[in-house]
Amino acid sequence: MVLGKRLRQLREQAGVSFEEAARAIEVTALTVRRMEKAEVGLRIPYVKELLRTYGVSAKEIEDFVSLAREANQPGWWYKYRDVLPEWFSAYVSLESEAAVIRLYEPQYVPGLLQTPDYAAALMRVGFPNATEEDIARRVSLRLRRQDLLAKPEAPAIWAILDETVLRRPVGGLEVMRAQIDRLTEILASPRVRIQIMRFAAGPHPGAFGPFHYFRFGFSELPDIVYTESLAGSQYVDQPDDVVTYLEILDRMSVQAEPVSRTRDILAALRKEL
């Protein structure tokens, strides 16, 4: 996405139209548009010729091509393609590159914070016909995503969880106890902030469903919001729409219990179990 936007900037700076760029590499203007929108891979011969057309220096072309080759390499999640839906692979990519992740979850603990047993219990419900081997693969993918939290450049995570998340029994009491213990432990991380939206808070603006907001460390990348439903997912990147979600998160953070109360809330719920 970053390189695609950079290609567009270079084309516009050179005063080259889509049609002129397309003629330079003998493709349609639509192909050039799709390259700039990161809807297709960056073919190295095309990239080199486009950059020459845009008057880019040989050294800059070399650097850009090096980045393009790196961008064309499959992510670590490629080996999980047998259990990773195509529509969700984009999410894993965004998650891996985000500097900030803010989210609201009304039903379940977010994947990045789940224990193996909790994740497995959810997988068995979501994929009732899957074999245990398949379930294990899906859980392995989820745990591999959690490696992100241990990295020096780990994103800042700010999660608002509905009280339902902590009261809905998933996998039995022992699994829920361990899951609450996991959430309590992760509160020690300076990069993780968790708030609880209590039932007593009443209606709130995010009650329609889960959504995740991503902010990146690249000026070329816009903020992106991810939402999902039974039919699939949607990635929202139009500024006005993204701002709407961000404003909802801000309002919910005021309505939810403060972060300073989260540990006590988790401890009280743990005693109930």
Rank of each mutant, 00 (worst) to 15 (best):
24 A>M: 03
89 S>A: 15
102 R>Q: 14
13 Q>R: 13
235 Y>M: 08
266 L>T: 03
268 A>L: 06
263 R>D: 06
147 D>M: 11
144 R>Q: 15
12 E>N: 06
129 N>Y: 12
203 P>E: 03
165 V>D: 05
257 E>P: 00
212 H>T: 14
270 R>I: 10
144 R>V: 03
88 F>T: 03
189 S>C: 11
11 R>V: 01
39 E>P: 05
48 K>W: 05
217 G>L: 07
156 A>D: 10
169 P>L: 15
146 Q>W: 10
96 S>K: 12
88 F>V: 07
263 R>M: 07
73 Q>Y: 01
99 A>L: 12
236 V>A: 06
242 V>H: 08
223 D>G: 08
44 I>C: 05
64 F>V: 04
113 L>C: 09
2 V>G: 01
134 D>A: 10
188 A>P: 08
30 L>A: 15
52 R>E: 12
68 A>G: 04
80 Y>Q: 04
114 Q>E: 07
25 I>P: 14
23 R>S: 08
236 V>K: 05
245 Y>I: 00
125 V>M: 11
85 P>I: 05
86 E>T: 13
150 A>P: 12
200 A>M: 09
231 A>V: 13
218 F>P: 01
258 P>W: 03
9 Q>I: 11
15 G>V: 00
172 G>R: 06
160 I>C: 08
156 A>R: 13
262 T>R: 07
256 A>N: 01
